[in-house]
Amino acid sequence: MKPEELHHRHLSALVTGDLDAAASLRGRFSPGDHRTAVELLRAAVAVCLECRLGPGAGLGAGPVDHDALAALMDEIRRAGAGTEPPPDYLAIEAAVRSLYGEPHLLEPLSDQQRGPVLYALLSSQVARSPWLRANPDRVVERAKAVMTVWLLG
């Protein structure tokens, strides 16, 4: 499988919540692919968050709408209540705000730490929006377009 197809299928599996498939696809990653997958996941999060927090996520938007952010975080905290260990909600907030003009907030998180944080955001938005879950390919294509801008400027 070409790297591009591998990443497409990996992110698509994350969008549809097929974590077994995603894990098995990660088994075929070469070392540099993990970082690419995390960046592509972050681009997908940007795409999904645009409906909540406004357009341009990761592409120059900002500052974030603080009321909308508070509502989003409240929703994510409710969904995560009782989870052990609890999700790192502040890292999740940092990931959101990093897409709205505060990229420095994500710097302290390693790629390994970013993965679960970004996935928590992706799955929270997919859970709210059946359209996202039903159209993983559209989400992946949009995410790739965002990532192309990140890479090429």
Partner: peptide
């Protein structure tokens, strides 16, 4: 916005790769 500005200043002042300082 004032808080975000404080957070950015703290990040620039204290964060170095690997030291784990999370301004948030």
């Amino acid at each position: 916005e004032d808080l975000a500005a404080l957070t950015k200043r703290l990040h620039e002042k204290h964060y170095r790769p690997g030291n784990g300082f999370c301004a948030i």
